[in-house]
Computed example of a mutant assay.
Amino acid sequence: MAIQDPTKSSEETEKGQGSLFCLHHDKKLDECVQNVDISNGLAWSSDRKTMYYIDSLTYGVDAFDYNIKTGEIANRRQVIKVPQSDGIPDGMCIDTEDMLWVAIFD
C-alpha cells in the first residue's frame, strides 16, 4: 500500500508500492496484481463470476473475470471512473440485486 505523507496530496503519494494477493485454502499465496497504490475494496457478483476491486488512487472500480474454483482473476477492466473532484473510492459492497455501492472519501 502506498504510504502517504500527511503533508502532501494524494497526487503526490509515491505510487505502485503494493500488490493484491490471493491466499488459497492450502495457504499458498499468489500475487495477482502488482503496482497497487491503496487497495480499498473487494466485492463479487452473485454468480461469483466477476470480482470488483478498488485501488483508490486510480479513482475507479475495476472488474475481473473470477474463477471461484482456482481463485484466479483475468481480463481486468475499469467499470467505473470517479472524477477526482468527487473524491476517492474507498470501499464497496454489492447488494442482493447485484447493485454495486461505492463509498467515496473526501
Rank of each mutant, 00 (worst) to 15 (best):
G16P: 01
I73T: 00
V79W: 11
A43P: 08
H25P: 15
D37N: 06
D62M: 00
M1C: 08
S85P: 11
S85D: 14
Y59R: 00
N40T: 03
D106E: 15
E11W: 08
D37M: 05
I104G: 09
K27Y: 10
K15V: 05
G71F: 01
G60K: 02
G71C: 02
N40K: 04
L20M: 06
W101Y: 15
I3V: 11
L23S: 10
T13A: 13
E97C: 11
C93I: 09
L23R: 10
W44L: 06
N75V: 07
I68S: 04
R48P: 03
D86L: 12
D90Q: 06
T13L: 06
M51I: 13
E11D: 14
V102G: 12
K28L: 11
E31N: 07
D5N: 08
D90V: 09
S10N: 01
N75D: 07
I54E: 00
E97G: 09
L23Q: 12
V33W: 04
E11N: 11
D65Q: 05
E31H: 10
S56M: 01
T7A: 10
D98G: 10
G60F: 00
N40M: 00
Q34I: 14
F64H: 09
Q34V: 12
D95F: 07
E12L: 03
V102D: 11
W44K: 05
N75Y: 07
I54Y: 00
M1F: 07
